[in-house]
Amino acid sequence: MKKPKRLKITETLGFLTLRLCMACVAMILIVIFYDIITKGAGVISWDFLTKPPVDGMTKGGIFPAIVGTFFTTIITALLSVPLGMGCAIYLNEYAKDDGLTRFIRMSIRNLSGVPSIVYGLFGVALFVEACHFGTSILAAGSTLGLMTLPLTITASEEALKTVPRAYREGSLALGATKWQAIWTNVLPYAVPGMLTGTILGLSRAAGETAPILFTGAAFFLPDIPNSILSQFMALPYHLYIMSTQHHNIELVRPIAYGTALVLIVLIFSMNLMAIIIRYHLRKKGIAHG
């Protein structure tokens, strides 16, 4: 009975290794959180959240950056949600599975691998210059929108794939048109998954620095932006400045940590929102993912 014993050891070892992997990942997350919270929580106050920076950004709050990130994310959503969902519906429901479709799909997958700084440069060429948006919330939000598109499309397509074929066929067999079948009997069950993927994409966009670097984010602005064609401050960029570009980095370190904390809380609440939406709709018995 030598072999079974060896198998058992392998099993235990394998299990242990996997568990260790998991623990490592969890530890990284916990350490990051611990570090940011302990060093950043001290500066968080009502004023920090609602006042602009003062005295050469050594004092005051980060209100303009919060507002800037908020509006940029809205522009991102307006661009990437309808476009991404529409594209996913087309690819999954209408497009024939031929060479062209496969090529389009491959391009989309590859687009998600393009470095964000490249999107930034592209945004300058397309939105800032060619579309005359200037360096603005609109240009930066659109650039981020483009960047999140592949993610939105892929996530939405996956969500559509989880809807059983029987729903489509059953609907068509009852004399529904293809669009009716999709609208009434596919989308309602795919939307929770689509939303979840989309929000995750947006939360990633909200934390990006490179794409907004040349397209609209400003080093310092005393006021909040008054239109989507204004430049803006953004949380990730502010964090970058406070940690590397400020004339007195040591002095403003707590502010940098505070900014990081706000940014992380913002992103986590977006992700939490995605989870809540999915949970809520799944409870109603219509989500599949």
Partner: peptide, 19 residues
């Protein structure tokens, strides 16, 4: 085909009630 399917209904192998 939409008109045809109204005239020629179909019941599938696996019951497929909608949720």
């Amino acid at each position: 085909p939409v008109d045809l399917r109204r005239k020629v209904g179909m019941v599938f192998q696996k019951p497929n009630p909608f949720p």
